[in-house]
Design a binder for these strands. Structure first.
Length: 265
DNA sequence: ATGACCGATTGCATCGGA
């Protein structure tokens, strides 16, 4: 089973690239982020025509996540628990039936968190990010009790290691790469989750995002921020991970590329 | 790491993104 994550930066503006990639890569499950639309305006028919079931947790203009799956959904749950006031559509979880039982998959759009002001703990966007990461940890701990394969896939807006950016000194202090962020990411992993790229590849300089600005793509000034986190039961069935870098070369590309994990599930 | 981007909006600039 191939399970992918991709921040598409608007599903409507990206349909040409999304359909081309689905036909080429044939993921069984694709977790999408930043669909930037309400559920009703999602181009459902075109995706279903390619053989996918679609779960959507959308929002007007910003954020929004979706999961496309060749297998039918046994369960669909939008929203990350822990804050009923949180209106931002950044989390969607589904369960499908794999060949050995249930497989739980989440599409995650973790807050960016910038700007970080002089006092990080007085920076509203940054504290929202840290709060969100704490909620994700609490929820992941709950899900891990199931002892079923669990894949938390998404745009984490976290640069895990110095080798995951072209210029660690320039990025240090940014909301994506600073002590509190890395500590929260590490705390998530200490629950027993495996970061799939770290496990199966681990090379430096393997990016999943290049800014539209400043010649970032032609100069390969990227960062790796799109990740798959695996429960032990998912890690046991994991076979490998590939970053679909070539997708960034297409017409009107997203600034992120798909990251695809393969599993014996 | 932003002089030179991109997308959404009810817009003819502003915001958010990373």
């Amino acid at each position: 089973m191939k399970i992918a994550t991709w921040n598409v930066n608007s599903i409507k503006a990206r349909m040409h690239a999304v359909t081309a990639w689905l036909e080429e890569a044939k993921p069984d499950i694709a977790c999408l982020q930043e669909i930037k639309t309400v559920d009703d305006a999602f181009p459902l028919m075109e995706i279903e025509a390619l053989g996918y079931n679609v779960a959507i947790h959308g929002q007007k203009s910003y954020n929004g996540v979706a999961i496309l799956s060749k297998l039918p959904f046994d369960e669909v749950s939008p929203r990350l628990p822990g804050d009923d006031e949180d209106e931002q559509a950044r989390y969607l979880e589904v369960v499908v039936s794999g060949k050995d039982g249930p497989v739980r998959v989440a599409s995650i759009y973790l807050p960016n968190g910038n700007p970080v002001l002089d006092d990080p703990m007085e920076s509203p966007k940054y504290t929202y990010k840290l709060d969100w990461m704490a909620r994700l940890k609490t929820h992941a701990a709950e899900l891990l009790k199931n002892e079923d394969p669990l894949i938390l896939a998404g745009d984490y807006n976290v640069i895990p290691r110095a080798g995951d950016t072209h210029d660690p000194k320039a990025w240090w202090g940014d909301a994506l790469y600073r002590p509190e962020t890395l500590q929260a990411f590490q705390a998530l992993k200490y629950l027993g989750l495996t970061e799939m790229f770290e496990q199966f590849d681990g090379r430096d300089g393997q990016y999943s995002f290049w800014d539209y600005q400043g010649g970032a793509w032609p100069n390969n000034l990227g960062i790796r921020i799109d990740h798959l986190l695996l429960s032990p039961q998912a890690a046991d069935k994991a076979k490998g991970i590939v970053i679909h870098r070539h997708v960034r070369e297409g017409q009107k590309p997203s600034d992120h590329v798909p990251v695809v994990g393969e599993f014996n599930l």
